[in-house]
Simulated assay, not measured.
Amino acid sequence: MPENTTQCAAEVTSYYRHLGENRYESTIHAQGAWNTHEQHMAPVTGIMVHALEQFEPRADMRLARLSFDILGLIPAGAFTIDTTLLRPGKTIELLQAELVAEGRVAVRVTAWRLQTNDTSAVEAYEDEPMDSLESSVPWDGLSSWPGGFIKSVQGRSHPDHRPGRGRAWLHSPYTMLDGGEHSSALVRLLGLADSANGVSARMAPVPGGFMFPNVDLSIHIYREPVGEWLGLDTHVTIAGDGIGLTSSVLNDINGPFARTEQILTIRPIPHRP
């Protein structure tokens, strides 16, 4: 079992250690829910967004769409993130980052980076904002899930929260990287976004039931977010042929800023003696 799964959580204040250049190591707080020896996709999203932000940054551009493909179990422990420019341009760029662990690519993301302009004169939003963080109540709905990442998250919800359709706020007291390395609000909040698939799950992960991992995560970011609390306004759809979809509008303390989609593979939880 990787060393990070045996760490005392109280001694660890970040999801990842930066080992230099493009090398990182996950901590106990990044541990996944389905297996003890894997990473949860939520902090993986955060660290990969951080790598994209650090790659040849331009003050007049920002990330606008992220499309993650999860190519298998994401091993805990040491890994690299290899970032490249697929499509250069003056106003539009396409980036790619790959998380490589144990000799294979575990997660690949492509990202459109677009030029910013002053469009405040025509600024408009149609997604409904969530009720305020102050009007929510403490919520431990993620506690039915195991793993270090789930234990690292604090939650609040609104009264209409239910399986399949919910509104919840999430926050983590931990930094994305150790040593005081700065992370943006986008990194902090998107490092929680994959939790949507568990926040309003229609089924609990119990023996004899169904598992429903997502194989991708698509995020469209129409506004730069702020703060440290992520609001998830989530719908979960399950078809009758083993495929489902988790859809969310992401909120910060000022309102909606992005949309996410996660396609699900739904199958019986395997029996483990």
Rank of each mutant, 00 (worst) to 15 (best):
75 P>I: 10
150 I>Q: 02
158 H>F: 04
88 P>N: 12
7 Q>G: 00
1 M>G: 15
16 Y>C: 02
129 P>S: 11
55 F>V: 09
198 G>V: 04
196 A>W: 02
182 H>E: 15
56 E>R: 15
204 A>V: 04
74 I>L: 11
157 S>D: 07
86 L>Y: 03
59 A>D: 14
121 A>M: 06
67 S>R: 13
208 G>H: 08
119 T>A: 13
233 D>P: 09
122 V>I: 15
241 D>F: 14
59 A>V: 13
202 R>P: 00
191 G>S: 11
257 F>A: 01
136 S>D: 05
24 Y>Q: 02
164 G>K: 01
198 G>E: 01
243 I>S: 12
103 G>T: 01
29 H>I: 03
246 T>V: 15
75 P>F: 06
208 G>E: 02
252 D>T: 03
116 T>A: 09
116 T>V: 12
78 A>P: 11
118 D>L: 10
88 P>K: 12
159 P>G: 09
230 L>W: 06
119 T>H: 11
175 T>E: 12
42 A>G: 07
136 S>C: 09
118 D>A: 11
154 Q>L: 08
20 G>T: 07
5 T>E: 11
243 I>D: 01
28 I>N: 04
169 W>T: 01
163 P>A: 06
117 N>T: 15
175 T>D: 14
242 G>D: 10
168 A>I: 06
203 M>G: 00
82 D>S: 12
202 R>Q: 13
198 G>T: 07
167 R>P: 00
68 F>T: 07
126 E>Y: 03
128 E>D: 10
236 V>Y: 00
168 A>T: 11
11 E>G: 01
66 L>C: 03
147 G>K: 07
264 L>Y: 04
33 A>G: 14
263 I>W: 08
41 M>R: 09
220 H>S: 15
115 Q>D: 05
255 G>L: 07
21 E>V: 08
228 E>M: 09
196 A>R: 01
132 S>G: 15
179 G>K: 06
165 R>I: 05
86 L>G: 12
10 A>N: 11
31 Q>I: 02
219 I>H: 10
57 P>V: 08
192 L>Y: 02
60 D>W: 12
145 W>D: 02
259 R>H: 07
233 D>T: 05
226 V>K: 14
46 G>M: 05
42 A>C: 09
159 P>N: 09
80 T>H: 05
206 V>Q: 14
162 R>Q: 13
228 E>R: 15
66 L>H: 08
124 A>P: 00
41 M>S: 14
134 E>V: 00
130 M>Q: 04
187 V>H: 06
57 P>T: 10
263 I>Q: 13
45 T>I: 11
246 T>N: 13
99 L>W: 08
26 S>I: 02
212 F>V: 06
111 A>L: 03
239 A>E: 14
132 S>D: 09
273 P>R: 10
18 H>G: 05
208 G>M: 05
232 L>A: 01
177 L>G: 08
212 F>G: 02
251 N>M: 05
103 G>Q: 03
205 P>M: 10
260 T>K: 01
148 G>N: 04
265 T>V: 14
148 G>Q: 03
157 S>A: 15
146 P>H: 03
